[in-house]
Amino acid sequence: MTGIEIFGAWLSIFLTVCVLSFLYDDNPIYKLAEHLFLGVSIGYGVIEIYFGVFKPNLLDKLMNGELGGFQRSLSIIPLILIFMLFSKLVPKYSWLARIPIAFIVAAYAGVKLTGELNANLMTQVAQSIPDLGAVWAEYGFWSWKHDGAGVFSSLFLVLGLSACLLHFYFSAPQNKAMQQVSRFGVLTLMLSFGASFGYTVMGRISLAIGRAQEMLGLDRLPEQVAQIHPRIATVVSAAIVIAFLVVWRRRQGDDYTPGN
């Protein structure tokens, strides 16, 4: 590793600790890191958009002599649409931006419409209708070995789905039977949301594990760890940030109220 890379690895750990300082409270060192992140990430977005979209799909096509006249002139249209979009910045002509906005909204509306209809509506409905005879023959009423597959689960799926849909049917008359069905729907939804919460906890902890791996040097090969000494970098960074927080907290005096 080069010197600048080792310095980078230390900076990376220091910035990690700066962001973690938010757990103590919102503080200037966190805010600094936050604004640095905003600036860098927007810059990244622009660069990748330029090299990923504008250059290959617009500028190079406009300049490309190999393309026929018709194809090249077609590339002028999105350029004109971009200028129209930027008229939003000039209040007097901002109405011009409606044309590119109309174009893009219409394109999205068109592709969303067919995609949702096919994959989310038709396929999901079709796949929810079980062949109970085949299910009975293969799994019986309930098979632990196959994670509870069987007639019971097939019926639960159909009834649970129907109950959830009826629960979402807000304009339906709320008689007693409807309330019972709706309640079953809510319980099915709760089982699903509970499972989602469990998965979310897992996901969030995984992200923290990723940061801890870097701070402890567990994500690198031994020879890199020997050069960087990530654990020393972590201790030094933590010491600097804690010292800063102590000074900052003292300066606040009695006015201090935890912000987060």
């Binding site: 929810s128 639960f156 789905l161 699903s192 989602s196």
Partner: peptide
């Protein structure tokens, strides 16, 4: 249950 709820 998860699939029933998600599909709904």
């Amino acid at each position: 249950p998860n699939i029933a709820a998600r599909r709904a």
